[in-house]
Design a protein around this nucleic acid. Structure first.
Lengths: 188, 188
DNA sequence: AGTATATGTGAACGAGCGTTCACAGTCAAG
DNA sequence: CTTGACTGTGAACGCTCGTTCACATATACT
């Protein structure tokens, strides 16, 4: 019964991306009084799955936006996966600077040995500097490409593919870094 | 000036994960009257970056939760990347059944030829059925592993690694599918 | 200069908010 | 059966909400 309420609350949040008001919870839970809701909310708060802001409005705990984080594949699924408290929010996990992040689609297999395949998506952060060894999006002599960024002791810079069928790219005119790759995402 | 307001609104939303009230916007924008806010909000609505719910409270447009989606790597960065309207929310993009999704860490290189490397994270959906060719988490004779799921015409099932150094796994006692891999995520 | 348009101020308003009270019904333990 | 703890009802309260006035100030155009 009590868990039904939690389920309904979660469903509401997933649908509307916000917590319901007390009136909405009355309908949602089937109560005819806001007081019944208030008592229930107190339990939610005690349990720590929600909290209140400075005006008394409900705030969802981070777990509402997250999915359970299990251990390694070898460890497999715990018998009661629902009980696990460790959760992760993919957006927060991947995106550090939201205002500066972009998604790109990979075409070509020049980075295949780094396990970035044709059709994968990459999350990048815009910048014009990079460290040796980072994967970057760069503009070399007018053409955009994604490669390993290389810089030696004499500050000579070039790009290196992760595919033995491709050759390193040495800029003729210029090599401008546009962004660094922060994550790779592949969907099946 | 007007864009400053949008920036501040975005910052507020990113920090608090909700839209500010009119009073909060007064402080946020430096107004001394709620009416000034109301006029500004009307413009936001006209522009389509926010809307209102049935109670008049502000709702963030989906773009607030998303990051810009550019084209392919070869196309590179458009000269004015800010102007692009195509955005994507990583969570929504990847997660179809939230209540049924889990994250696991990959250990080992048995799927390396499918470009899933040691240390990568996989997003999985719990299920006990799979189609031939899908990547699954399975319990084979008591041990959990991630492999290609195979099923031939006679309904014989086994697991196949994506690494020529590993051999296919034929169950002695049982092969229980636990989850199917929906996405791979690698963070740098 | 004069006028129209846009932008901000200040005050008032009704509505819905979350809170709190007294009270009735339910259920289990003594 | 009685008692006490728990749970839900119904009504009232103060508060902040978003809305909407009339009015002042700034900006732009003729």
């Amino acid at each position: 019964m009590y868990n039904d309420y939690k389920t309904k609350l979660t469903q509401f949040y997933n649908r509307d991306r916000r917590m319901p008001t007390y009136s909405e919870m009355m309908k949602l839970f089937g109560f005819k009084s806001k007081n019944a809701v208030a008592r229930l909310v107190d339990k939610f708060i005690e349990e720590g799955i929600v909290s209140k802001d400075y005006l008394g409005r409900l705030i969802a705990d981070t777990s509402f936006d997250s999915i359970p984080m299990l251990g390694s594949v070898k460890a497999g699924f715990p018998s009661d996966a629902e009980e696990l408290k460790d959760t992760i929010n993919i957006d927060d996990y991947l995106i550090a600077k939201k205002d500066n992040s972009y998604m790109l689609t990979v075409d070509g297999d020049s980075m295949i040995d780094a396990h970035i395949a044709d059709g994968d998506m990459v999350l990048v952060e815009k910048t014009n500097t990079a460290k040796d060894g980072q994967i970057v999006i760069a503009n070399v002599d007018g053409e955009f490409t994604m490669k390993y960024f290389r810089k030696d002791k004499e500050n000579k810079v070039w790009l290196e593919p992760a595919n033995k069928d491709f050759k390193p790219i040495y800029p003729k005119m210029y090599l401008n870094i546009t962004a660094v790759v922060k994550a790779v995402i592949r969907k099946y």
